[in-house]
């Protein structure tokens, strides 16, 4: 444990309210803008389109007029696995991605990654993206690049970082002001902060004072693919049974998690 060793370790996570999420995509753009995610002229080939945050559209499979849809924003789940053995972390041969036990954040070091893509094969959430080409910003547009996040080069994997640099900035600010702790609202991810519906709540899952601590306990809360043992730190909330069931795989006659 580092500097703040008197405090309990942090476990940052999210609770996303799917009843509120409107599928507007603001979180996706907030993330791209914050994290210098590149863009191309044609982004309709979704399998090579880098979206650290991706909003999925779920359908209930019923016919008109019983049809229903639900939007599900999917950042990296920052899986804890079994004591930090996230699916992607333990497989990376070069330790270019790592589980930070102080924050629970799964990092990605672009300059370390040599592009073997084993981590992508390991991640069941398709949260990892490969730079299939050199990123190109049209002339002038490189001006809006955020200096807190380095643009990636061709041939490496990238993914949501829970806006780790925003954590660093918050820490720096607190440090400069002589504090050793930061408040809940001082470290908010770009997507959570941007969401016009306030559907994303971000905070320390270990901290009783943080909203996520309370929200994750709601009985209508679930995580994606919990049964695989990925132990994700992103929780979802939905009042609709079919949505909760869509969060994991169940055998035909098996009841979804209560």
């Amino acid at each position: 444990m580092s500097k703040g060793s008197k405090h309990k370790v942090k476990k940052f996570g999210m609770v996303i309210d799917l009843d509120k999420c409107t599928g507007c995509g603001a979180c996706m753009v907030a993330c791209m803008s914050e994290n210098n995610v590149p863009f191309k002229e044609n982004e309709s080939k979704k399998l090579d389109s880098i979206t650290w945050m991706r909003v999925y559209k779920l359908e209930n499979g019923k016919s008109f007029p019983e049809a229903d849809i639900c939007f599900l924003p999917r950042p990296c789940m920052h899986c804890e696995g079994d004591r930090g053995h996230a699916p992607c972390v333990s497989v990376c041969p070069a330790i270019a991605t790592d589980y930070d036990h102080n924050t629970g954040i799964v990092s990605q070091i672009y300059t370390r990654c040599f592009g073997c893509r084993y981590c992508m094969a390991a991640c069941p959430y398709h949260a990892r993206y490969f730079n299939w080409r050199d990123p190109v910003w049209p002339e002038g547009m490189e001006k809006f690049l955020n200096p807190n996040v380095s643009p990636r080069m061709r041939g490496v994997v990238e993914k949501c970082s829970f806006c780790h640099h925003r954590y660093q900035l918050a820490l720096d600010k607190a440090y400069a002001e002589g504090r050793d702790k930061i408040e809940e609202d001082e470290y908010q991810t770009a997507c959570a902060h941007a969401c016009p519906a306030n559907a994303i709540t971000f905070g320390d899952l270990n901290n009783k004072k943080h909203s996520v601590y309370r929200l994750k306990k709601n009985p209508n809360t679930f995580r994606l693919l919990e049964r695989l043992g990925t132990n994700p730190k992103v929780y979802y909330h939905s009042s609709r049974e079919w949505v909760r069931r869509a969060g994991d795989n169940y055998l035909k006659h098996e009841a979804a998690k209560a």
Binding site: C24, A26, V29, S33, P138, G140, M141
Partner: peptide
């Protein structure tokens, strides 16, 4: 508040 379009304003500012 802000929406997806407002969030795009840096891109629109520097747009080709």
């Amino acid at each position: 508040g802000i929406c997806i379009l407002g969030l795009s304003s840096p891109q629109l500012l520097y747009s080709p």
